[in-house]
Design a protein around this nucleic acid. Structure first.
Lengths: 330, 330
DNA sequence: CTGAAAGCGCTAACAT
DNA sequence: ATGTTAGCGCTTTCAG
């Protein structure tokens, strides 16, 4: 169980340890003969370099840490796809941690990556206070994805949440809806912007905003929809803060005997795979999550390798995806 | 950006480096005065211990690596929940990597964890050859979850896939179905056992098994259902290898103008949150995924700390969750 | 092209 | 209770 070290390989190959190090990393200053001998010895021994030691000596890990706010939210794996593809192409590893929707866990996930001295950290959907992120960013490059925040030293990457909400709300208004309720994302990442976009659109059309507070979870969608439906207030459409809360609302609407979109139209946000299921067919907003993931890596790399110090704030335009949960009001 | 080291803290607190090390880890053999002084110095400096260095010196990382076969499959986050809870309670960190359904990526995820010298690895839904896992298990404790395999040196934890498939198929038979097609999981983890359970149940009832090959993805469910429906063969029920492939099948069935469960009954496997959505309400099989995650950690810990060397193979009984996608045949 | 030697930041005996 | 001294396994000058 005790693993062979570089010394073992060196001894077996009849060369010095330093040469093994060079040979294994394909340095040009190693003769072919040595290279072959070293490789052979390493293979025979089943040698695997100890990254812990390598990193301690070289001061870099070539690893990015990805903190996902909630592994259960199908939005995030899409971001992870983009991150992985780009990281892979650039020769970086990616390690993931989930915050499990808990701020304390999120904080410790961030600390763990810092303590592991990863070369860069991607925070997605983070709910940590901006100050905490700023502080952490002083010791490692951090890029915050899908969580709008203004900062001079941490990079951010977002879809335009406000615009997305405007598209969603505008779509409902155009269909003829006047009683549109917004189940918001509470203090979730981007929730405030989506709420603002909703409110602005409503006002622009002379309609009164009606926000029921929620969170980015299915359970909160259930609770919020129950409140909205139970209020007795006229209601023909709901714009939920994200897809999973929309799904919660969908359940409640149907349970109440109403049908979607016949009685009530419903819009989500994120365009997750669940929204795309024909059986659900939820009208929603696409953020471009994979692209955000890729951009996150690029942003990190040009800070690390390019030495950039000024923060970048990139916002990409979302698009409305119209499916079958929206129709003119009854 | 250059971080303070333990030496900096020691100097500032006016003590030796070793004492800082002890104080920061709450060793009882440190005076209160020193402890306070060290903590203060560390805080003022914003000191964070370098885990890389700590691990190199202590030969352990107190970290488990979790390799998830497919981050997009909502089954896995449930396992991760269980792992995290148990790991947390035992004082271990958890790092995640996704294989993104790709065997090569899965292999490199495993290698990365080995190279990082994590204390234990949990493979869930892995499709790697058993031999590769066995080999890796020689250098680090590995427990394989949701992937049946017989082995003398690697621990496994599974629900009884065969039994689960028998429950699912038996349920359909009891409802009166005779033309039941199984969309299998191809070479996915546990797919063979589920297929066997289906076939055995069919034969036991004098029915002819009909397996259409698939995989554990939505896209494969779509393709397989199209083939089944297009075959012209009588068909009143489908038992899909897992929930996401069932969802793919559901889309195709409805697209063909048939309704579920009126024309065709449908059963999945995994009881993911999507199956539970009232709007989907998929009859499925619950594996007990969180429990599997917790057990995985316990298994790893009693091997690491308890010094166990004989492999454990634990199988837990699945349960059928009947919802609204199953009904008697038309 | 190869080897020797000096660390990387920390832990773990061993002293005191 | 606290300090000293070796490493952990690797990379990286610096000589040869």
């Amino acid at each position: 169980m005790t693993k062979p070290t570089m010394d073992d390989v060196a001894r077996r190959a009849g060369v010095s340890r330093a040469l093994v190090s060079l040979a294994l990393r394909d340095s040009p200053k190693v003769s072919d003969a040595s290279r072959v001998a070293v490789r052979a010895a390493a293979d025979e021994l089943g040698y695997r370099p100890n990254l812990i030691a390598r990193h301690l000596a070289s001061k870099q890990t070539r690893t990015f840490g990805l903190v996902i706010n909630d592994l259960h939210n199908p939005y995030f794996p899409g971001v992870a796809d983009g991150v992985r593809r780009a990281a892979d192409a650039a020769g970086y590893r990616m390690l993931i941690q989930s915050a499990f929707l808990d701020d304390v866990v999120e904080r410790s996930a961030l600390d763990t990556f810092i303590d592991f001295r990863v070369d860069g950290i991607i925070l997605t959907g983070a709910r940590l206070p901006a100050a905490a992120i700023e502080a952490a960013a002083r010791s490692v490059p951090i890029v915050v994805v899908s969580r709008p925040m203004r900062s001079v030293n941490v990079d951010t990457l977002n879809n335009d949440d406000r615009l997305g909400a405007e598209l969603a709300t505008g779509h409902l208004v155009e269909l003829g809806h006047r009683h549109i309720c917004h189940i918001d994302g509470g203090d979730g990442a981007g929730a405030a912007q989506r709420r603002a976009g909703y409110e602005a659109t409503m006002r622009r059309h002379g309609l009164e905003p009606w926000v029921v507070s929620g969170a980015f979870t299915e359970a909160s969608g259930v609770a919020a929809a129950e409140r909205a439906l139970g209020s007795g207030r006229p209601l023909t459409a709901i714009f939920a803060g994200n897809d999973v809360s929309a799904l919660g609302a969908l359940d409640v609407i149907e349970e109440s005997g109403r049908s979607v979109p016949h009685d009530i139209s419903l819009v989500g946000y994120d365009n997750t795979f669940v929204a795309a299921l024909r059986h659900v067919s939820l009208t929603t907003v696409e953020q471009g999550r994979e692209r955000l993931g890729e951009l996150a890596v690029e942003t990190l790399i040009n800070r690390i390798e390019g030495g950039r110090t000024k923060a970048i704030h990139h916002v990409i335009p979302p698009t409305l995806v119209v499916r079958h949960t929206t129709a003119p009001p009854p």
